[in-house]
Design a protein around this nucleic acid. Structure first.
Lengths: 159, 159, 159, 159
DNA sequence: TTTT
DNA sequence: TTTT
C-alpha cells in the first residue's frame, strides 16, 4: 500500500565501527556513519577538488547483526534503504531533526568479507524481497533506540 | 548472500494489457511491455527527437495478480526489479536470448488506480521488505512460463 | 573522480508550491517539500497503517525554473538527486543540520503537465549525463536553455 | 523532454577485458560483460543456491576510454546506465535482438584503481547531474541559499 | 504496442 | 504540508 518511492543508494566507507544494540526482543540494530566522496575538477584552475558527505545509516534487525559482525571503520559498502527523519529533543528542550538512511540491503565491497561470511543481503527471488528477520531469536541485551520507535514498533512489525 | 547488485528502475507506459497466467500451484505471473521514451534536441538542426525503448517486464506472484487486475494498456507505472536474460530455442532450433525485467515492486502512477485498490507493493517496515506471496492459494490453470523456471522454482522459493 | 555513490530516488507529492529564488547571475533555485507515504499492515491487529516522510528538495538552475513553473502543491513528481546535509546556525547560535535532496533530474507524473511543457530533465546521450550548462547566461527569470542541443553526435544516434 | 525513467544499477565483475573501439570521429566505445550473482537458500532443502546473470554493458565516449584503460577481467565495478535493445540481423538474415546496458556512470570498486586514476564519472552540469554551479554568484538577490555555497563554487566547476 |  |  505504498504510495510513493523513497529510495537511497549509497556506496561509501564507514567512518568508524558500527554500534550495535539490542532490543529486549532480541532484535539488533546497528548505527554507522558512511562517507561518500565526490570529486570534480576546478573549472578555472583545473585542480582536483572533492567534498565528502556523511550519512547516518541504521541497519535494523538481521542486517544490524551482520553489520556489527562484518563491518568496521573504513569498510566499503553498498547500502540501499530509505530516508527517515526523526524528531528528537535536545537537552535544552528544543526540537531537532535528524535524517537517517534506514538500510534495507547491504553489501560489503571490500573483498575482505571472508570466505564463509554471509553477505548481509537477503533478497529472495520469487515475487518480492525477503524479510530478514531471524524467527525466534531470544534476548541479548542493551538499550533500544529512539530511532526505532514509530512507525515501527515492537508489537507492530509489518511482517 | 548476494554478491552483486542487479537493479532496474522504470517509469513508463504499458503497450498493451498485461497477460496473466497461473501455475498449477496457483502462483500468478503477468507479462507486460513497458515503453520508456527519451527525448532530446538534435544538436545540429535543433529539432526535437525522441526514441522509445520497449521493456519486457515480468510480474511474478502477487504482483502478477495485481498487475493483471489494475494495469491496462496505457497505464503509467513505476517498476523496480532486476534483469534476467532467458535462453530459449526458436522453431529452427536456434538458441535465442530474451532479456526481461523481473519486477520486485510496482506502483501505479495514473491516479486512476481506483478507490479501494491495493497498490501492489508490499513492503513492510522493520528490517526488510516483505514477501508478497499469497498464503494457501489454490489452482487456477494455464501454461506456466519459461521465465519462471530456474533459479526460482516452485519448490525452491527463497523465503 | 567520484569515489562513492550518493543517490536518492523519490516519487511523491509536493506539500506546497515550490519557492523559487534567483541569484544575481540569473540562476534559479527552487525549494520544495515532497511527501512519500508508506503503508503496511499491522502484524498483530491487521489494521492498515501508514507513515509519511517529508523530504526537503532543492532544484538548482534550470530544474529550479521548471519546478517553479510547472510544479505546485499536490503535484506528483519523480526526483532523482543526492543527499546533502547543510550546517547552519540557529538564532541562539547553535549549530544545526538539515538534510536535503539536491535534485539532478525531475519528472512530472501528473499528466497535467500541459502540452508544450518541458519536462525538466536534461540528460544527454553520448557517454555521460551531460552538463547542460549554458555558459554565458545572463538573463534571469526567463532565459531558456542552450542545454538541450548536443550531446548526440554525428548523425545523431543516441547509443 | 524525457517522459519516462530507464535506469539500471549494477555492481558486478567483468567476465573478460573490455573491448575498446573507436569511431572515425575519435570517439571511443567499450564493450564489457558484467556478472552479477544472486544467492538464496532453497526453501526446502536449505541448501545454498546461486545464479549468475551476465550483462552486456556499453561504455560510450570518455567512459569507454576509461573502461579500456582501467578495467580488466575480474574488475569489480559499479555501473549506472539505461537499457537499450538493439535489433540486428544474423547471418541467416533473421532479426535478432540484444539488450545492453548503456553506461552513464562507472566506478571501480577494486581499490586497485591506482592513485591518479580518473574514475570515469562525468557528471557535471547545470540542472542535470551536477554540481550546481552558479557562475558569478555573489550576492543573492533574494534570500540566497546556504545550500548553494560549497562545495561547488564559482571558480570551481566540476567539468 | 505506450505516453506527452 | 501532499497524496490515495
Amino acid at each position: 500500500m505504498a504510495r510513493g518511492v523513497n529510495k537511497v543508494i549509497l556506496i561509501g566507507n564507514l567512518g568508524k565501527d558500527p554500534e550495535v544494540r539490542y532490543f529486549p526482543s532480541g532484535d539488533a540494530i546497528a548505527n554507522a556513519t558512511i562517507a561518500t566522496t565526490e570529486g570534480w575538477k576546478d573549472r578555472q584552475t583545473g585542480e582536483a577538488k572533492e567534498a565528502t558527505e556523511w550519512h547516518n545509516v541504521v541497519f535494523p534487525g538481521k542486517l544490524g547483526e551482520i553489520a556489527g559482525k562484518y563491518l568496521k571503520k573504513g569498510s566499503k559498502v553498498y547500502v540501499e534503504g530509505s530516508l527517515r527523519t526523526r524528531k528528537w529533543t535536545d537537552k535544552e528542550g528544543k526540537e531537532r531533526y535528524t535524517t537517517e538512511i534506514r538500510a534495507q540491503e547491504m553489501q560489503m565491497l571490500d573483498g575482505r568479507a571472508g570466505g564463509a561470511a554471509p553477505m548481509g543481503e537477503e533478497r529472495g527471488g520469487y515475487g518480492a524481497p525477503q524479510p530478514s528477520r531471524a524467527p525466534p531469536r531470544s534476548a541479548p541485551a542493551a538499550a533500544p533506540a529512539a530511532d526505532m520507535d514509530a512507525p515501527f514498533e515492537d508489537d507492530d512489525i509489518p511482517f
